[in-house]
Design a protein around this nucleic acid. Structure first.
Lengths: 269, 269
DNA sequence: CATCTATTATCGTATTGTGGTATTTAAGGC
DNA sequence: GCCTTAAATACCACAATACGATAATAGATG
């Protein structure tokens, strides 16, 4: 294992469960000698990724907050979505969530809260598996076939649990249904008593970039009400898709010859 | 320069001005060979600190958002302040800002907006120098004397520009005045047409941890109004100070023998 | 299928990180 | 002011490991 790897390993220690680590704890967890650990820590503290709290150990530093704020201001997906998400919660209440898929998980990258004070249990910065909850499933339904096949091979039981089917053909059919409808709804799959309605967001080509969802603390939405919410969510998601492909084309770096698809804002998987 | 250092150098490329970097641009900027650069990038992408946007280069990855959300949920300063900041903007409107000093700068780590829709020009995640704006000055006024002296030696002109005095004795007097009043106010020093009122936050002992401020889009506050705002801000800041020292004592890691001061939440400088 | 570009693998070399130990720094207690 | 304790850094011989020019591969494009 490379030293770079080991140093980055320090950054992955921090969690909601453990916000500060002492040298002793890191030494035990990472089984690195003290002097090496101190060397890594000095680098990370100098670069402001960590900061030292006397008597409490080390914790995350100011750089994390600075970089995240750059993402919030500059990420095309987030900046395009924010105003539409405010509209959604103004109309329906609850919470609007913007999710993005990175590799094999779905991360909530932004949220807007409505006036009713409801907070989703799936907060910004938290990630969920690809199969549970409408925000994840609607992304999953648009992933390449071969990736679906591979995931099914590896985690067939998870597919059954999620109610997506017990063989690959049934799964394909479930996903096709979601694709054809253009949106997805799940009730109580992430948090009991909560309904989520989600629509996919695409980049300039046909790749899923993420999903837009509306989350309400209800389980008894009427067919008509659900359809109104789903329509508006889908409409907003399409508007974001359009904004992404437009900005992608005009902002594309002129130093890069347009070889492959432009405006692909989905990270590589 | 160590390889760790060089790798972290990649992370500092990203800014509001440049959100995505291609390999060619990094190569030119960091003057590292391609193969080395790719090796670093692979590590950073694997650890999810970066992500690759095809045709656009590399940009900040999901780990940044995840780590920042941990800070927002777990940092004792932020969690203690949030409810009080909501109260402040509910009463006075404008924006409540929570700042923290790291080394020789002051970083805004949290904000709450009032109903009047005003947004400060000094957003969350952005940092300011120690001398300008009440949120910074009220922190600076409580820093150790020797640090003030050193900074004055290095940047005497900046002190004059900030109106803090042209010799060390005048500066000491200005800072003493701020300390004795218990809060600070500046008008248009950060953004023209904007008034900031700030009070210091301390950790368990006598060290400044940061500042709490109320920012209003006005320049014509009456003496009485100002004093009402300053009183309430100071009151809230003291409440936060109390919360920090309390939590610091009960949460202190039992593995660490209480040798030096407990509950010092100020990062080392 | 041919082509082009982004990314990864290879591998001999010596630079550079390693990790014991000793030392310094800094805070608190007495 | 001095002693104690812990945190953090400096030191340094050794060899592991990162380097980097080059070649190979992957993956999309047309």
């Amino acid at each position: 294992m490379s030293s770079l790897n080991k140093m980055l390993g320090i950054m992955t220690l921090f969690s909601d469960q453990k916000f500060a680590w002492t040298i002793e704890e890191m030494e035990a967890r990472l089984s690195l000698p003290r002097s090496t650990l101190y060397r890594y820590l000095r680098e990370l503290v100098d670069a402001e990724f960590l900061t030292s709290l006397p008597e409490m150990g080390y914790t995350l530093g100011p750089k994390i907050i600075e970089l995240e704020s750059i993402v919030q201001r500059q990420d095309p997906l987030i900046t395009a979505s924010r105003p539409l998400m405010k509209e959604l919660v103004a109309e329906f209440g609850g919470v609007a969530a913007l999710c993005r898929n990175y590799r094999q998980k779905v991360l909530c990258v932004h949220q807007e809260q409505g006036a009713d004070g409801f907070r989703s249990g799936y907060l910004k910065g938290q990630s969920r598996p690809l199969l549970m909850g409408s925000a994840s499933r609607v992304i999953f339904a648009h992933l390449p076939n071969q990736m679906v096949a591979k995931l099914f091979d590896d985690h067939a039981d998870a597919f059954r649990l999620a109610g997506l089917g017990s063989d690959i053909e049934a799964v394909r059919q479930s996903l096709k249904t979601i694709r054809q409808r253009g949106w997805d709804v799940t009730i109580g799959q992430v948090t009991s008593g909560v309904t989520g309605v989600a629509a996919p967001i695409f980049d300039g080509r046909e790749n899923v970039a993420g999903s837009l969802s509306v989350v309400l603390r209800r389980t008894d939405l009427s067919e008509e009400r659900l359809s109104v919410i789903a329509d508006k969510t889908t409409f907003c998601a399409r508007a974001i898709t359009r904004a992404l492909s437009d900005s992608g084309e005009e902002e594309s770096n002129p130093n890069v010859r347009p070889g492959r698809s432009l405006s692909r804002l989905i990270p590589t998987i």
